[in-house]
Design a protein around this nucleic acid. Structure first.
Lengths: 149, 149
DNA sequence: CTAAAGTACGTGCATATGCACATACAGAGA
DNA sequence: TCTCTGTATGTGCATATGCACGTACTTTAG
């Protein structure tokens, strides 16, 4: 039994990237009116749940710390988020403003529309399974620790 | 039965993005020596298979055309790829150079290491299933067509 | 043949992503 | 108190991503 020749499509990472692109464009088509990107929406949701220090927030979202810093800028510019140093001046607290709360609420309605549309497209159960599969893969594939220097 | 409250994690798109980040960093940790990003590797593989016009290539990889243009630049700079106009000067053919072929081959070895490591981490069958699931989701979730103006 | 319509691409702009390096601040020890 | 070290964060650089808009070249209608 010869090994199957490798096709460029055999790459799990490439596939995941492609699916993510498609999903992102799907969600963002619905979020367009809110002026929020999908990432930004996730950010606002996370802040609503628990205001946090920047680093904590990055860990919760599992985003690179520096990516988060930059992702917050447009939200700051819109007045949806405020950053303030805590007692320990090294920390920067990130807080949702009242306007931010409103923006999040509006965006959430559109997000729901998107999620509903996705379930229409793929089937409610299919989406539920997909969520579980993604979640399970996340549980199994541990993030790489940055090299401890 | 009351509806479950929505958590920020309920979003399929956010989950997919997270998994993609993790997979990308996993693969790229292995590809590091080759100097290629995962996307660039996919690109070289695709070119090896069939040299194409830029637009065709973008469609094959399902990448935004303009993203592809920019992604080719570092490969051009490395001398791995050459672009040339065809008879119809509107088209630009993208061709792998001999050096590009060598780079691809070296990268492919490292990609294999990565894929193998992934299978070690998650189990061979699990990865196979994940691939199928991703592929299936891609088949079902059609890409959005840009608005026909 | 010439203007209009169509096709394939590139550029500018705004994020998203992560690494390497620099900075700011706090606590521990001399 | 004055480093030294550790912690939280910011910046520079190089892609990745996609939309809106502009450009170059071809084909087609008149």
């Amino acid at each position: 039994m010869a090994k199957k020749p490798e096709s460029p499509l055999a790459c799990t990472g490439a596939r995941a990237r492609r699916l993510t692109r498609r999903l992102t464009s799907f969600y963002e088509a619905h979020l367009r009116d809110s002026g929020l990107r999908l990432t930004q929406y996730s950010l606002l949701m996370q802040l609503e749940a628990t205001p946090r220090m920047l680093g904590e927030l990055a860990a919760a979202l599992e985003m690179d710390r520096t990516t988060l810093t930059r992702s917050l800028k447009p939200l700051r510019d819109q007045g949806w988020v405020i950053e303030a140093a805590g007692e320990d001046a090294r920390f920067r607290g990130v807080v949702l403003t009242e306007e931010g709360r409103r923006a999040r609420l509006a965006a959430q309605r559109q997000w729901r529309t998107a999620q509903f549309a996705l379930e229409q497209e793929l089937g409610r159960d299919y989406v539920a399974r997909l969520n579980e599969q993604l979640e399970d893969a996340l549980l199994r594939l541990k993030p790489l620790l940055p090299e401890e220097n």
